[in-house]
Design a protein around this nucleic acid. Structure first.
Length: 427
RNA sequence: GUGCCUGUAGCUCAACGGCAGAGCGCCUCACUGUGGAUGAGGAGGUUGAGGGUUCGAAACCGUCCAGGCACCCCA
């Protein structure tokens, strides 16, 4: 093995094959976002550490952000999430924007974490937010966006579900059990990890937080209550909205969903594969005041984020990633010999101007090699233009997939090419 | 940051203290003005790195690097 300088831990190389998949994912995200009237935006990848100081979970910034001093000594962070940037962008134009804003973004993020399945140090994330509305309808809309996205990827409701809860409901329920206000945040965090710890360990840890055995028992029956949402007017309305939006089948109530980030104040949700093979596909919720820490008038909203890693793992496991190959609709023009090169180039140029994707061979190696090359890179069609064809003004058009070929006048080339490529479209 | 598992040819893996191998892929040829196939040859490894134990290490031991699994946290 030669000494090759290693890539940075937790980063991924996107070769054309992987890049085509990423491009496909971005296209789907763009289409779904636009179909709900959302506009694309982006912020810088570099931010001052101060932006994150007051917001986010503390651990997210202190332990999971890539932070380094720039040449002037200022501490710069590679953005670990987009929400603080969004808050700043909204706050600084708060008086000129028209609310509610519907914004989405897709870009790279970095977190200094231990890489493992579904988690890398550099990842791409779709962020989408509806800002400036406190209505249940806004929460429902974002969940519908998530559901329609899953649908557009070919993921069926029995394969992945959006699990929904409401922090206000949980808070009220904890209060009813008699859990004191100061204790509730810790209990909520504990609820969030109930499926990650063995039952006895979780019980013990929960008791250690200060619950009585009776409260623990009540808490556990609370978390097993699939009908709890019916006690929440907001959730009742939410599920009814989801029904009208045609995405009810993707949604499910789940009292264990809390979400880690502090700024969620109402509806919280995350999408998970029903087989339980992967971590959360996406997560989000309702916040009471996006711009609270950045200054500006209180502004509620709802949004979610989806990383590229888990969704691609899921799609891969479900066989839902299409074959993507940039060359698959391209035409290969072979170069028979030096004397024929100019004719081949002329034909190639003409086809490009007609809108086809056309590539040639750099040298004049024998046809076997050239056609093998065309086949391996996945070209859809190939042309052979030798001395005999040139003399008669003809070309040989090969359908590489069908393994057939036609000898035809050069003038009829476009007509036949269009037929071959149309045939591919219909597959 | 903590614990556990793994690292052998381009890829997937075998060899488990005694000569480092297979399948696939790659290259050449049969092949002539024609790509899936078939056949015949061929190239390719300091066994992740650098130490130790041993007559002898891919294998055993500790260190580092990387990947995976769980925790933490989260997309």
């Amino acid at each position: 093995m030669e000494k090759i300088i290693r890539s940075v831990k937790g980063t991924r190389d996107f070769y054309p094959q992987e890049m085509a998949v990423r491009r496909w994912l971005i296209t789907k995200i763009q289409q779904v976002s636009a179909s709900f009237g959302y506009q694309e935006y982006d912020g810088p990848c570099l931010e001052t550490i101060d932006l994150y100081a007051a917001k986010s979970g503390e651990e997210l910034v202190k332990e999971q952000a890539f932070v380094f001093p720039d040449r002037s000594g200022e501490n710069i962070a590679l953005r670990p999430e987009l929400t603080p940037t969004l808050a700043r962008m909204i706050a600084s134009k708060q008086n000129e924007l028209t609310f509610p804003c519907r914004w989405w973004s897709f870009g790279p993020f970095w977190r200094y974490e231990r890489p493992q399945k579904g988690r890398t140090r550099e990842f791409f994330q779709w962020n989408i937010d509806l800002i400036g509305s406190d209505q249940v309808a806004a929460d429902a809309e974002l969940i519908a966006v998530a559901a329609e996205f899953l649908r557009s990827m070919g993921v069926r409701p029995e394969q992945a579900k959006i699990l929904i809860n409401d922090r206000r409901l949980m808070d009220a329920q904890l209060s009813q059990i008699g859990i004191h206000t100061e204790l509730r945040p810790a209990i909520l965090r504990q609820i969030d990890r109930i499926d990650k710890q063995p039952a006895e360990v979780w019980d013990k840890n929960t008791l250690d937080l200060g619950l009585t055995p009776e409260q623990l028992s009540e808490l556990k029956s609370l978390l097993a209550s699939a009908d709890l949402w019916q006690q929440s007017p907001e959730l009742s309305e939410l599920f009814s909205e989801l029904d009208a939006l045609g995405v009810r089948e993707y949604a499910a109530y789940e009292p264990k969903i809390i979400r880690g980030l502090d700024y969620y104040t109402g509806t919280v949700f995350e999408a998970r594969d029903t087989a339980g093979n992967f971590r959360a596909i996406l997560g989000g919720g309702h916040y009471a005041n996006l711009v609270g820490d950045v200054g500006g008038k209180p502004l509620p909203g709802v949004g979610f984020a989806m990383g590229d890693v888990v969704i691609l793992l899921l799609l891969e496991s479900l066989g839902l990633i299409p074959e993507n190959n940039a060359a698959s609709e391209a035409v290969f023009v072979s170069i028979f010999d030096e004397n024929c090169r100019s004719t081949s180039n002329r034909v190639a140029a003409r086809l490009r101007r007609a809108g086809y994707k056309v590539f040639t061979y750099p040298g004049t190696e024998k046809l076997t090699r050239q056609l093998k090359y065309a086949d391996k890179v996945g070209a859809r069609a190939a042309l052979v233009i030798g001395p005999d064809e040139i003399e008669r003004g003809e070309v040989v058009l090969k359908d590489l997939a069908a393994r057939t070929q036609l000898l035809l006048p050069e003038a009829e080339l476009e007509k036949h090419l269009a037929a071959i490529l149309a045939e591919r479209q219909s597959l």
